[in-house]
């Protein structure tokens, strides 16, 4: 009995130490975003400084040149991530539905072909992709950021697996009622697969929100930069102080934290999906 209590305390100790290691940098970001450089660089770091330097946030938003490009880049990130998400959800669910519920010649081949693209890492094809997008005239445009990322094999596979168990009766009933095949997808399948769609939507939105490499290749104009590009530029500018840099980082993180706290289930199920892929 005593040994068990001892073990319990031991386990709690480890779990808490690890949680501290994980949470300290996030706390650091939020506290430092309200401090002057002098306080941030003080030894030891003053966790509760009592300082509320909101002008750090103002500086982050205004930018060192006073042109408010950060606001623009937040809007760009929202726009690009949302459009990619809408497109991905529609296209992946349509393809997944076609593969799950229709029998046609070459279906297995198409599925295998799509799955095989999972083996092609984006980093290995980014240079040819960059040249293709340039040839299509989509350099330095939102379309260039969105179009090549509109579909992904994992999303299609996920939707297909989900729709395999979709009740055929619902589909057949709609067909007898004279609904067109596309109508069935639009009015029956899509509204009835919201859990899978939500998970896919969050995965897609996050990966676009987070994307650095592709915008780095495609975007040159300052007014078209997304948040990661802006933060890199802001962080390396001479007049940026540490507090303003953390304020910029905090601003970029707050929308994601809000999403995370309201939709925790779908965030975690994105990870769990992977573990469930046992078949």
């Amino acid at each position: 009995m005593r040994q068990s209590v001892f073990l319990d305390i031991f386990i709690w100790f480890f779990l808490i130490v690890f949680a501290v290691f994980i949470l300290v940098p996030i706390l650091f970001m939020f506290t430092a975003s309200l401090m002057s450089s002098k306080n941030i660089m003080r030894i030891p770091y003053p966790w509760i400084s009592g300082e509320f330097r909101w002008q750090n946030y103002w500086q982050a938003i205004k930018g060192n040149d006073g042109k408010f490009f950060y606001l623009k880049s937040i809007w760009n990130s929202f726009l690009v991530a949302s459009l990619t998400t809408i497109g991905t959800v529609l296209l992946c669910s349509l393809t997944g539905y076609g593969l799950a519920k229709y029998r046609f010649k070459g279906r297995t081949f198409v599925l295998l072909m799509i799955l095989s693209t999972m083996m092609i890492p984006f980093e290995a094809i980014m240079i040819p992709l960059y040249l293709i997008v340039t040839n299509m005239g989509m350099q330095d445009t939102y379309a260039g950021l969105i179009v090549p990322l509109l579909m992904n094999a994992f999303g299609i596979f996920m939707m297909r697996q989900y729709l395999l168990t979709f009740p055929d009766e619902l589909i057949d009933a709609a067909r007898i009622d004279g609904t067109s095949e596309f109508g069935i997808y639009w009015k029956i399948v899509l509204p009835n697969s919201l859990p899978a769609i939500a998970t896919l939507a969050i995965l897609t939105f996050r990966s676009q929100w987070d994307n650095l490499l592709w915008p780095l290749l495609i975007i040159q104009s300052p007014e078209k930069k997304t948040i990661p590009l802006y933060i890199i530029q802001f962080a390396t500018e001479k007049y940026t102080n540490e507090g303003a840099m953390m304020a910029a980082a905090a601003i970029a993180s707050i929308p994601m934290f809000i999403l995370f706290f309201t939709l925790t289930k779908y965030f975690l199920s994105g990870a769990e999906l992977f573990a469930a892929r046992k078949d």
Partner: peptide, 29 residues
Amino acid sequence: RKKAIWGFIFTMPAIIFFAIFSFYPMANA
């Protein structure tokens, strides 16, 4: 037969997409 055609139509965008944005770039590399 109608269903087979629709199944093909539904997967067509994906086939075109991956041909342009996955297989061609890989072959090109």
